[in-house]
Amino acid sequence: MYNGGKIITGLIIFVALATFPFYANFGKTVELPSELEAEPDEMHLGNIPLVNMRSEHMKLLDQWRDEVVRGGKRFIEYDGDEYEKSLQNGCLGCHEKQEFCTKCHTYAGVKPYCWSCHFAEGEEGLL
């Protein structure tokens, strides 16, 4: 090989970069952030399909925002009760943020910008 030293050095650097995930995780066992089990037809509050929640919740929140901010329709009625279409007072009224949002979001490396304005109970908000 001509210029073997340089070429092999370059190849070693390349392979080291390309196989980064393999040695960075060598021997690790990864814990899942949550187990989500739902039947295909299971509904949350009557019309929110549970099975889609993990992949579709951002669409729902987006849709709620439009309905509340533009349409003024603030509540879902279910079983005679009213539920607020709200992240803070709706979802986080029952679910805990750490378990319900943060764990999976940290795991998947997705930082939603919900929390630039909204905040969970007990957190310091913008106010």
């Binding site: 980064f20 951002m58 910008y113």
Partner: peptide
Amino acid sequence: HLRFFTEPVPGWVNMIDAVDGFMQMGVPH
């Protein structure tokens, strides 16, 4: 895509994602 191949996701990968999505258009950004 390293966020799918590292756990925990390193800060610099999150930072690239934040810079890439800094327009904050839509959800997911």
